[in-house]
Nucleic acid binder design. Sequence first.
DNA 1: TAGATCATGTAATTTGTTACATGATTCG
DNA 2: CGAATCATGTAACAAATTACATGATCTA
Lengths: 186, 186
Amino acid sequence: MVKPPSPLSALESALLALLRQAPLSGYDLRRVFADTPFVHFSDSPGAVYPALRRLEARGLVAAERRRPEGGRGRRGFVLTARGRRALESWLRLPVTVDELAQGRDVALLRFAFTEEVLGRAACVRFLEGYAAALETHVTSLEDYARRNLEGAPLSGRLAFECGVEGFRARLDWCRRAVTRFEQEKK
Amino acid sequence: MVKPPSPLSALESALLALLRQAPLSGYDLRRVFADTPFVHFSDSPGAVYPALRRLEARGLVAAERRRPEGGRGRRGFVLTARGRRALESWLRLPVTVDELAQGRDVALLRFAFTEEVLGRAACVRFLEGYAAALETHVTSLEDYARRNLEGAPLSGRLAFECGVEGFRARLDWCRRAVTRFEQEKK
DNA sequence: TAGATCATGTAATTTGTTACATGATTCG
DNA sequence: CGAATCATGTAACAAATTACATGATCTA
C-alpha cells in the first residue's frame, strides 16, 4: 500500500516552473512572489521553504549548496529530470470547467510557461482547450442567471454579470491569442 | 490576555451573508455552494459544519433546532444581532489593491450582498472604491509589464495581458454599474 | 559598530480536504 | 423492502499563516 503520489499543489507547481531555467534559492522564490504583482502566491517562509522540502523529498528538485561550511548557507535549487517531467505534465493538464469555476486562475499561469517548456504548438492547443472550457462555463453561468437571478437585487445581478463578462473577455482573449501565434508562425 | 477576535474567513463571511434573511441548515448552505456556479466555496461537510460551529461559538449565529428529539436533527441557523453587525462591517470593508492582486475576488462577493444589507448609496460608494483600487492596480501592472516583460516569451506576455485586460474590464463594469444605480434612482 | 536586509528555518495555530460513520426519510 | 438522498458530524491529514529565532552580510 504505497500511497499514490498526490498531485502537486499550485504553489509547488509554480515553484517548479520558476526553477525551470536557473537555480534559485528559497529566498529568490519568495522575492518573486513578493514582487510579482500578478498571480499571487504566499511569500512567507512558512509556505515556501516547506514546499521546497516536499519537492526535494519527491526528488523533483535538488539543492546545490553553495556554502556548506557554516551550516546555514544559501541553497540554490534545480529541477531534476523527474522534476522537469512533472512540470511538463502539469503544463499539459487540460483546462477543466471546474478549474474555471474555482476563481484563482491557475490555467493562465500554466499557459504563461507553456511556450518555453512545450513550444508554440502546445500553446495553441492549450488555448483551444481553454476556449472550449470557457464557452461551456459561460453558457452554464448564463443559464443559471436566467433561472435563478430573476428577482435578485440589482447589486447581486450586477456582480454576477461582472463575473460572466470576465469569462467572456477571457474567451475573446483566447481567440486573439491564437491569431497572434498564427501570425508569428509566418 | 484575551485574544482579539480574528477577522472572519471568506467562508465564514459568506455563510453570514447567506443567513442574512432566512434560517438555513448546514446542508442548505452546502447545497448553495454545490449548486451556485459562481464564487465557489467548498461544499464539503468538513468545511461547512466546523465553520458554522465557529460562528456559533462567537455568538454570530444561533441554532434553532427543529427536531431536538432523536439527537441529530436538522438545525437551522439564524444571524444574531452581533452576527448582523459582523456582516455589515464585512460589507463595509474597503476594497484594497492587495485584495485584487490575490486572485479570488471576494470584493465582488461583498458587493453582491451590499444592496440588500446596506442599501444603494452604499453600493455606489463601494463601486467608487473598487474603481479606485482597480485603477491603481492596473497602473502598477502596466508598469511591471513595461519594466519586466520586454524579452519574455509570447505566451508569458499574453497571459499577463489577459490578466490586465480582466482588471480593465472590471473597471469598465464599475463605471457602467454606477450609471445603472443612478438611472434606477430616477 | 549599529541597524537593515539577506537568508533560512521552526512552532503553534487555523483551515480545508478526504474519507468515513451514522441515522432519518423518501420513493420505486 | 432496498436504494438513494437528506442531514449531520468526526478523524486523519495536508497546507497555509503568523510569529518567532538565528546568524551572516552589507552599509551608513
